[in-house]
């Protein structure tokens, strides 16, 4: 996705302006003249200036290319778009479900989805989607003692 410099610059300038407005509410350090607002304020002012500069530069560009939002050729192929969107969507799925499902189930399901969307055949996809998280469990949970959530499997692994 290619966003023209004019729009891009305006976005950054807008961000800078919002931050500048927001930091006015930050308190000063007791007994000092400055505080939490100083540093983000300076950065936001910088963003505002650089954003305006970028915007102006975009306007001067020949052919008004600075004002457009264009998609690449691949965005016209629905298969590719699905493949592309599956990356953030899969991560989002994992973030939302891993606590409930547990690492093993959530990672296997997410991975299976990606493998199938990317065009791996069903059997190897299933094997990899089960095998790889199991391997990672060994490395992270057993060796490095990272407390990966068990989720639904908790009752199965630790029956009481």
């Amino acid at each position: 996705m290619k966003i023209g410099d004019t729009i891009l610059g305006a976005l950054f300038a807008f961000l800078g302006a919002i931050v500048l407005w927001h930091v006015r509410t930050f308190p000063v350090i007791p007994g000092q003249k400055f505080g939490a607002a100083l540093f983000p304020g300076v950065i936001a002012a910088g963003l505002l200036v650089c954003g305006i500069l970028l915007s102006v530069r975009g306007l001067r560009q020949a052919g008004g290319g600075g004002r457009s939002i264009a998609f690449d050729d691949w965005a016209r192929d629905p298969v590719v778009v699905v493949r592309f969107l599956s990356v953030p969507a899969g991560l989002l799925f994992y973030i939302l479900t891993s606590d409930f499902l547990g690492f093993h189930i959530a990672a296997s399901v997410t991975m299976l989805g990606w493998l199938l969307i990317f065009g791996v055949r069903l059997l190897p996809a299933v094997a990899l989607a089960i095998g790889f998280p199991a391997l990672m469990h060994l490395a992270f949970y057993k060796v490095l003692r990272v407390p990966l959530p068990w989720g639904l499997l908790e009752k199965v692994v630790f029956p009481s």
Binding site: V87, G90, L91, Y94, A107, T110, M111, W114, L115, F118, G119, V120, P124, L128, A129, F132, P133, M136, F140, L144, V146, L148
Partner: peptide, 19 residues
């Protein structure tokens, strides 16, 4: 192959960001 590697990388990333 890349189509099998990318999902593995992503799971690896998930674990790294979590850990």
């Amino acid at each position: 192959p890349r189509k099998a590697l990318l999902p593995c990388i992503l799971v690896f990333c998930i674990l790294g960001a979590f850990a």
